[in-house]
């Protein structure tokens, strides 16, 4: 939310020359349906730079960020106590996105300047921040651990040089959503940069939802938990009985 307001503010405050180049963008899909056969999904992002003036001399950079819904995550650290490894310190990391994929048209720190990155919270490290915690003195390590674990699970990624730029006008990239993504509204930010400065940006949304049977089961489990629990039992009991009966029948013949 903060980021949305911030970018709106920046958009309004930006002088007219900054908008000489505008982004016209599209996506292969703006909703991802999670059904029983869902194994992940690939989103194709593409677009063009619209301009009324000649192409400036400085090279064009594109940064594309797809971000999942934010949640608070507790990160725990193990320590050896009495000879065994035990969870000791815990730090709550607020506003950690469930998914965060960055694709750029060149080296990240070359395409986007340090100041711009800090102002707009683009890189993973800028996005995942810990609140100051009195109990531990190395809270940063917990944020780093969160990033490391999520990168390993394919939920956070930085893919440099993966946005293809054609004649400084057309760009495209594809982002892989793994099968362990969570539901929610995902945002796709596109930043156009020159010499590390953002000259234009564009936001669009992707909705990731469960559908069909998956939706029904999920809703039932959360809205009618008792009925759901009894239903699970009934199914279990039925299968147990059916298998036993079937086997007796098979063995008798």
């Amino acid at each position: 939310m903060m980021r949305l307001l911030l970018s709106l503010l920046l958009f309004l405050a930006a002088p007219a020359w900054a908008q000489e180049e505008r982004i016209v963008a599209g996506m292969s899909q703006n909703r991802v349906a999670i059904d029983a056969t869902f194994v992940g999904s690939e989103i194709l992002l593409f677009g063009a730079v619209k301009r009324e003036t000649p192409i400036p001399d400085s090279p064009l950079g594109v940064v594309i960020v797809i971000e999942g819904p934010e949640e608070t995550v507790t990160v725990r650290r193990k320590e050896r106590q009495f000879g065994i490894w035990v969870n000791t310190d815990a730090v709550a990391v607020r506003d950690a996105p469930a998914f965060y994929a960055i694709a750029t048209s060149g080296r990240f720190d070359y395409v986007l300047s340090e100041e711009e990155n800090r102002d707009r919270l683009v890189s993973i490290e800028e996005t995942v921040q810990v609140i100051e915690n009195a109990e531990v003195d190395d809270a940063e390590a917990f944020a780093d651990a969160l990033i490391r674990i999520r990168e390993k699970e394919g939920l956070y990624s930085l893919a440099e040089d993966s946005v293809f730029l054609d004649q400084s006008t057309l760009f495209s990239t594809s982002v892989q959503l793994p099968s362990n993504v969570v539901e929610g509204l995902y945002t796709a930010h596109i930043y156009l940069t020159r010499e590390g400065k953002v000259v234009s940006n564009h936001v669009s949304y992707v909705s990731v939802r469960k559908v069909g049977l998956e939706r029904w089961v999920f809703n039932l489990a959360h809205e009618r938990p008792l009925i759901y629990g009894l239903l699970s039992l009934a199914i279990a009991g039925f299968f147990g009985w059916a298998a036993s009966t079937l086997f007796r029948f098979v063995f008798r013949n």
Binding site: T72, R77, K78, R80, W85, N87, A145, L146, R148, I149
Partner: peptide, 15 residues
């Protein structure tokens, strides 16, 4: 599992 140093000392949990 309890005695050997785990390769990842940190773990994630929901709030």
């Amino acid at each position: 599992g309890l005695l050997i140093e785990p390769s990842e000392l940190y773990s994630l949990g929901q709030e």
